[in-house]
Design a binder for these strands. Sequence first.
DNA 1: GCATAAAGTTAAGCCCGCTTAACTAAAAAG
DNA 2: CTTTTTAGTTAAGCGGGCTTAACTTTATGC
Lengths: 149, 149
Amino acid sequence: MTKPIQITQSLRTWMDVFMHRSMRGWSQFAKSTGLSMPQFSILMQLHHKGPCGLSEISERFDISGAAASQLVDKLVQSNYLERTEDPSDRRAKLLRLSENGAKLVDDGIQQRYLWLDEIANKFDAAQQKKIVEALELLTHAAQSLEEKK
Amino acid sequence: MTKPIQITQSLRTWMDVFMHRSMRGWSQFAKSTGLSMPQFSILMQLHHKGPCGLSEISERFDISGAAASQLVDKLVQSNYLERTEDPSDRRAKLLRLSENGAKLVDDGIQQRYLWLDEIANKFDAAQQKKIVEALELLTHAAQSLEEKK
DNA sequence: GCATAAAGTTAAGCCCGCTTAACTAAAAAG
DNA sequence: CTTTTTAGTTAAGCGGGCTTAACTTTATGC
C-alpha cells in the first residue's frame, strides 16, 4: 500500500512545480504581447484546433456570441486573425490565424519549449530512457481519460 | 543522437496534454467560485507562499500598489482574506487566507488532484515505480533550475 | 414559398482591473 | 527633531470583457 501513495505524491509534486512555472510563463508572455488573456486564448485555441467559426469560439469559451464577435474583431483589426466568409454557408465566417498571429503563437510555444529543453539536457542516457517511458505512459493514460469523457 | 530528441518530444507532448487539461480545470473552477482570475490568483499565491504584506502582492503580480489594495479589499469584504496590522511595523498590513478562503483554495486543489489520482490508478506496480522515479528526476531538475535563476 | 432557426454584428450599459495623483500615517535617516 | 522614505488607502478616469436586446442575412423545415 505504499506505492499508490507514492505515485500520487510524485504526480502532485510534479504538477505543482510544473504548473507554477508554466502558467507564469504563459501569462508573462501574453502580457508582453499586449494582448489580454481572453484574446490570447483565442489565438492559442485556433492554433490547436485549426480554423473555425464564431459560434465555436463562443461555445468553447462559454461566452455570448456578441462577446466572441467583439473579441475576434479586435484580433482581426490587430492583424492576428483572418475572418473570411465560409463558402459553404454564407452566414458563417471562417476564422484562422494570420501569418502574424501564427508567428506570435509559435514564439510563445518556443519559449515554453526552451525551458523544457533545459530540463531535458540535465539527464544522461539512462535517465532519459526512463523518463521517456514514464512520460509516454502518463500521456497515454491522460489522453485515454480525456476521450472517455 | 536519437535519445535527446526523444526526451524533448516526450516532454513537449506531455506538456501539451497536461497543460491543456489543467488550465481548463483551473479557469473553470475560478469561474464557478464567482471570483475573477486576478482575485483567484491572489488567493492561490497566499496559499503557496503564506501570509504577506500588500507590497509583496503588488510586486509579484506586477501591478501598482493601488491596484493591489483594491483587489485585496474586495477579497477581504468577501471574507476570503484577513487583513490585520503587522505588529512589527504599524504601517504594514498582514494578509492571510481566512478559513473561508483556505477552504476554497483547498477545494480547487482537491479537484485538480482527483484527476491525477484517476491517472495514477491506471498503472500496475512496476509502471508506478518507473513513473515515480522519472517524476522525481524531473521535479528535481525543474527545482534546481528554478533556484539557479 | 413562407415561417423558423441559425450565424454574426452592433449598440447600450455594467462591472472590473488598472493607472495616476493626492493623501495619511508610521518608520528611518540625517 | 526634522526630513525623507515606505506602506497603504482613496478617488477619478480609462479601457476591456461581458451581457442583453435589436437587427441583418442566409439556411432549413414543412
